[in-house]
């Protein structure tokens, strides 16, 4: 599915500007992937590899970006000061800017809304809508 009407190069530039991260700094050591509690597949390092290879569409359409929960383990452990969490969030934003939200507010169900902790709802709406 074509999300971006741009070349991979300019899309990557947009992502880098939005997140403030430099994708080419990554040297694929895989520490982020090793520590990822969400066991993302494709993993954070693979996503970054896609970006470096110019496969932007593949990265932004990966289902795994939606299972990141922002625990920041990857960013904390990166020896090159890249924040995979920020890159993943950037991908989510670019996806949401052009596509439908991943969570439909009014389909969440009364029980969930009534019982869940406020901060979960607020964060979820920030990340998935």
């Amino acid at each position: 599915m074509q999300i971006l009407m741009k070349s991979n190069q300019s899309a990557l530039k947009e992502l880098e500007l939005a997140t403030g991260e430099i994708v080419s700094d990554c040297y694929q050591c895989g520490k982020c992937t090793a520590g990822c509690p969400a066991s993302m597949d494709p993993s954070p390092s693979v996503l970054i590899h896609y970006l470096k290879l110019g496969l932007f569409e593949k990265a932004v359409n990966s289902e795994s970006i939606w299972s990141c929960m922002g625990c920041l383990t990857c960013s904390e452990r990166c020896p090159k000061n890249v924040s995979p969490a920020a890159i993943v969030e950037g991908l989510k934003r670019l996806h949401l800017n052009r596509m439908k939200p991943r969570v439909i507010l009014h389909a969440l169900g009364q029980e969930f809304l009534a019982n869940s902790t406020q901060q979960a709802v607020v964060s979820g709406f920030r990340k998935f809508v």
């Binding site: 507010l105 009534a114 607020v122 709406f125 920030r126």
Partner: peptide, 17 residues
């Protein structure tokens, strides 16, 4: 009979946005 706070949250979940 729903508690007031939960009632608002279920009617208008978008306030959390």
């Amino acid at each position: 009979k729903m508690p007031p706070d939960e009632h608002i949250a279920t009617l208008y979940p978008e306030i959390f946005r």
